[in-house]
Design a protein around this nucleic acid. Structure first.
Lengths: 331, 331
DNA sequence: GACAATATCCAAAGCGCTTTGATAAATTTA
DNA sequence: TAAATTTATCAAAGCGCTTTGGATATTGTC
């Protein structure tokens, strides 16, 4: 039997009779034969691989735990379509070089861009490389067209802040992610808009920016509590920071909700699912795993049809009421 | 200039003169030429890829956040040696099938096995596939030889429990990971040995097993606190669970340390680094990122020389004193 | 039953590199 | 200066598939 027939039988082409196909498949099963990945990729000219480059800052050396859930969502879709997932942690200064290499060597058929900044260089660069990509998040100051999947950060944080104001809070802190990262900027905008619409003016010191770690949540909460007029409510960008905030409140013998209200953004991470009937934290919730799925779908569609117009998918976070928000105590 | 010369110039073979090499390299740089990954892999017969299969249980759908840090450690080493990292989340019932496929198609040159069970089937299976691998963890009941990198879990939890006993605690709970997973079993053994050596007998109810999530830490802590004779100290397997335990203590208006002592295992996750001068939690600490690095080194060595005898690397966790452990209060 | 149409199958080319074995040029040795 | 080495380069084979363009066998049509 010829190689051609075997190849067609295995890959489901119609040119081969059902009978022959069965014979081939049985023989393949018997010898545990599977077409060699490397040869197949060379012959087809496709890498059948999606790259996820996660940039790691030299100073911080952090790996954002939301990647685990995002990738879990994406990975399932890739598997369904026969794609592999290539994960690479690169020092952030090497990031574009890495993309260029992936493209030049054609190691991957597409990439996902994580944590875009407000003025994200990578997007124009990737467009010029002609490598299909999807951005998880958006980049406010980037005129280019590109595929993206994002949460409505501005609106979410507007609503969160608005809710606190409606409860009677007027001194509200924001413990946000790193300055310059797009989602953090949009969240600050939403927070500021709510204050403004309610004629509340607050000093810049009520907003902090840092990597979203537990220790940073703690440290920044203490800083806010040490202000001359400490906030009675705090909005924060991550449930991990919320845990740090909680620790700061404990240390100051303040009770979450009663003494200080907290609203957090909740990515619905599998290890921190706040799924009680009444959640611990009032939260703007949006599953990052779902975002991973959608990003993967979008990328696979773009790879299948590269002439496709870039698309943006905007997810709306739910505002979930928990027990961490109450009206402010009278002073 | 012939293909041969170009190939040799780029890959640093000595058969080409320095002058020619420079000419080639300059031309390559000018046209941004990089050898095609697919073609190179087919020609060399190597995939230059390491697979990490993370099994995801259908019921839980959890992604252990320690993978993020483990992989961060491993990824750096792979990059140094020119290897790519293939990440695949597979439903646990399909796991062996996935390994078999990777081997048959020779998609990867080696794999890392995560979260081995006490009686881990995958090890014998992988040995039979002749696919180089390293286990992160060990498998107590597996007679096979294999490469592994593990923490001294038994000893760590023995020391942790011993410390609590020395402080005067006699009723000590253990909030552990899933039953059957090797590290959890060894930790229970260490805990039980310390109790036994100090002639302390406790009912089975003082040990709980579950996925290491925050909500499970909370739930299991409440269960322990509801026992007729509640523990004055708790040992737990993850800093994420420790946060859940803390929440349970808050709810019961018990103070961490003063009312209930807690010792946790601390993987030194980048988002939960407990690095204050006096850490919040007394902990058995061992960097999972370092484990990732060591696993990668071991795997790459094995791939380079497949006849190499399997090696085991045993890391000792540090016992770090924090402020979550105090002598028990008098009742 | 002759011819067209269709269903099956196959030989060979090609994917873009690495590597082997050979040749030509430069250098050393006698 | 001729022969023996060494150095520098190249032509061609091959990695294990997919795919193209034919060839052959089968079926259908009038």
């Amino acid at each position: 039997m010829s190689q051609t027939t075997v190849s067609r039988a295995i890959n489901g082409f119609p040119e081969v009779s059902e009978k022959t196909r069965q014979v081939v498949l049985e023989a393949a099963a018997k010898h545990n034969y599977k077409p060699n990945t490397r040869a197949r990729r060379l012959a087809t000219g496709k890498s059948m691989t999606i790259g996820h480059l996660v940039s790691v800052s030299k100073e911080y050396e952090l790996v954002n735990p939301i990647f685990a859930d995002f990738i879990a969502g994406a990975s399932a879709r890739y598997a369904q379509s026969g794609y592999d997932l290539l994960l690479s942690l690169v020092p952030d200064e090497d990031e574009f070089t890495s993309y260029k290499e992936l493209a030049a060597r054609s190691t991957v058929d597409g990439v996902v861009v994580h944590a875009p900044r407000v003025d994200e260089q990578r997007i124009a660069q990737l467009n010029s490389l002609n490598l299909p990509f999807v951005v998880h998040g958006r980049s406010s100051n980037t005129p280019e067209k590109y595929n993206w999947v994002d949460v409505n950060n501005e609106r979410s944080f507007f609503r969160a802040t608005q809710l606190l104001i409606e409860l009677g809070h007027t001194t509200i802190g924001l413990i946000n992610g790193m300055a310059g990262v797009d989602f953090a900027v949009r969240r600050t905008q939403g927070y500021l808009r709510a204050l403004k619409e309610n004629n509340i003016e607050l000093a810049n010191a009520y907003v902090t920016h840092s990597e979203m770690t537990e220790p940073n949540g703690y440290k920044n909460a203490l800083a806010l509590l040490d202000l001359p007029d400490p906030p009675t409510a705090i909005v924060t960008s991550s449930i991990i920071m919320a845990h740090g905030i909680k620790r700061a409140l404990d240390e100051r013998e303040l009770k979450l909700g009663r003494d200080v209200s907290v609203i957090t953004h909740d990515d619905d991470l599998s290890y921190f699912r706040d799924a009680a009937a009444v959640p611990v934290y009032t939260a703007t919730r949006s599953s990052v795993r779902e975002a991973g799925r959608l990003s993967a779908d979008l990328l696979l569609k773009t790879i299948a049809d590269p002439s496709r117009d870039p698309e943006g998918i905007l997810l709306d976070a739910d505002l979930i009421l928990g027990s961490s928000t109450k009206p402010p105590r009278l002073r």
